[in-house]
């Protein structure tokens, strides 16, 4: 992170301030390879009131967000990206009362499309709760809203 370009440091702040991520109490942990984000367990994220297990949508949201960040890490300059598709394989239910982490790597960036692989886990990446595969459109020349100069 220390040798990350200035705009990428802004991107971390920008991605942390995303209303959806803030609303679920999530935060960016690492802007690198992999990109890492975390969401602490909270009652409002529960999808199964009988077991206290977090809703799958929270995992989808965290993986989508972290995948986008992983694409940014691979770009040489800030530009807007849009999710084309995202596949999530749910390996096991998330254990209640434990943080959920998403770790994503952008495997390849072409002129227009970026390909991402990611894992959601609860502290041990070798024991995943979900895996994801995503494709993102890169909108070159689009308005991204990330400051490129020091704040």
């Amino acid at each position: 992170m220390s040798d990350a370009p200035e705009w990428l440091k802004h991107a971390k702040k920008h991605m942390n301030l995303t209303p959806y991520l803030a609303g679920i109490g999530g935060e960016i942990v690492e802007v690198g390879t992999p990109a890492i984000a975390r969401v602490p367990y909270s009652d409002k994220l529960v999808g199964d009131p009988q077991t206290g297990v977090v809703h799958g949508g929270v995992i989808t949201g965290l993986l989508d967000h972290t995948s986008g960040l992983a694409v940014m890490v691979k770009l040489r300059e800030p530009m807007p990206i849009a999710t084309l598709d995202l596949r999530i394989d749910y390996m096991r239910p998330a254990k209640p009362h434990q943080d959920i982490f998403a770790e994503c790597i952008c495997v390849r960036v072409t002129h227009e499309v970026a390909f991402v692989r990611g894992t959601a886990h609860q502290g041990d990446a070798n024991d995943p709760i979900a895996l994801c595969t995503g494709a993102f459109m890169i909108i070159r020349g689009g308005v991204h809203g990330i400051p490129v100069t020091p704040a």
């Binding site: 209303p19 959806y20 609303g23 809703h55 799958g56 949508g57 965290l62 967000h65 986008g68 991204h144």
Partner: peptide, 24 residues
């Protein structure tokens, strides 16, 4: 509502919100 936003510049709903609605 405001906390569904993923991109405040456009503005656009977060992809995770869209996924959450569809999964629900």
């Amino acid at each position: 509502v405001q906390h569904l936003i993923g991109n405040p510049v456009l503005p656009a709903l977060h992809g995770g919100v869209i996924g959450s609605l569809l999964e629900t």
